[in-house]
Design a binder for these strands. Structure first.
Lengths: 226, 226
DNA sequence: ATTAAAATATGATAATTGTCATACTTTGAA
DNA sequence: TTCAAAGTATGACAATTATCATATTTTAAT
């Protein structure tokens, strides 16, 4: 069993507020999982009874709409926690978490987290701040979905993907999303997404290398995104 | 100065977790305000340094989009708290709060709330749960905005307005929103909103009495909304 | 009570976006 | 390696939604 104390990603989440003793206790009761690309960590409606700490890889949090399409609400990257909301609300998961890349995650049981909440105020304040940050992002995202055009949202999403997950050796977006997933992020039909990507390529603001996307003129994209 | 102990709406918010002593302390440092319909409680970008408890009246939380339209993110009713998110995040307000009806609110300084957080675990857990509830609603709302048509969202919003704020003596929605505000809730142009209301009226599912809206066939609306 | 301003309503039209069909390309399993 | 399946791409068309113009009604200030 690996030690939480030595885990680097801990620094990026609320877990950084835990003491050495608490980390040792956590290392004792945690379970590590390997999740392959495309596999779920948990699904909408499932009772999770704990939270996951993402050690490696990226996953999408999405919800199936009544029209049959999957809307991606958020991408979660290493260092972030997963499933806090439903654990705190004591409800089944509202969203599905599915790996976009191969992942390594650790599961920490609810009983443990609740103990940390009561004994470590810094920890609970940190979790609270994280959730507040999520709420702010959700509100902002909502406004964009309601008021911006698909093209504006696509441009904004491409910039977000580059700034958040970086680029590979070709200078293309490191995070490989399918066109369907990209469409699910911006809230549009897959064909519309593909069509607008072609349009942005024709304009010369992006380049399409196979299914990879490379941002050529970020300023132009920024101007489109507002 | 009125006593928080005797305030009924307290029961509906996290403030119900406070002890008698804490309530007395709060009554001492709170400030009461009367806010007229149309007036702001705080605006986007403002530093608030505390939270508001809504004693009477309803307000909208909205954000100005780059296209110049105001998107309404949430309606806040008596008993609910206002401004917790930015207080906890220690950031300026992300949304504007504007009264939709004449309101009575109490302002409680941040220093006080932070004290309650550290000394009363039930209180901080309750606030955390409320914010988690807000996050869930925001996520769900996001999916609807991204995946549903304007007509579906309008139908859903009308049902929400009836079930949340009730009806007046005519059976019409008690909460009086302008067409522009209703459009701002569902994320569409005012004209589109008006047009669809006319359409729903022609179909006989709703009735328009002046600018009031009355739901005639809720089941039909529900079927439209999904 | 009068009247200007604001809100509501509707038509005409354009722009955006979704849907269906189909072709091409890539991927992965036998 | 081969081939079926999945993913990507594009065209044609329909549906939805926004925009602009204008009329009507309501509201509120004088």
């Amino acid at each position: 069993m690996s030690k939480c104390e030595q885990c680097i990603v801990r620094q990026f989440s609320s877990l950084k507020a835990l003491s050495k003793d608490e980390l040792l206790k956590m290392a004792d009761c945690k379970t590590s999982y390997t999740i392959k690309k495309g596999e779920p960590i948990f699904e909408e409606g499932e009772i999770t009874n704990g939270i996951y700490c993402v050690k490696d890889g990226v996953c999408k949090l999405s919800k199936l709409s009544s029209n049959g399409k999957d809307q991606i609400v958020k991408l979660v990257k290493p260092g972030e926690l997963l499933g806090q909301r439903s654990m705190i609300s004591e409800e089944p998961a509202n969203l599905s978490a599915v790996a976009i890349e191969d992942m390594e995650v650790c599961f920490i049981p609810k009983t443990e987290i609740i103990q940390f909440f009561t004994q470590n105020n810094q920890f609970s304040m940190s979790v609270m701040k994280t959730i507040c940050g999520d709420l702010k992002e959700a509100d902002d995202h909502m406004v964009d979905l309601a008021q911006k055009s698909v093209k504006e949202r696509l441009a904004g999403t491409l910039i977000y993907l580059e700034e958040t997950f970086g680029t590979d050796s070709d200078g293309a977006l490191r995070l490989q999303l399918s066109r369907e997933e990209l469409a699910g992020m911006i809230g549009t039909a897959t064909e519309s997404c593909i069509r607008l990507l072609s349009e942005l390529k024709k304009s010369g603001w992006i380049d399409l290398i196979g299914k990879k996307i490379k941002i050529v003129d970020k300023n132009k994209l920024r101007r489109i995104a507002d």
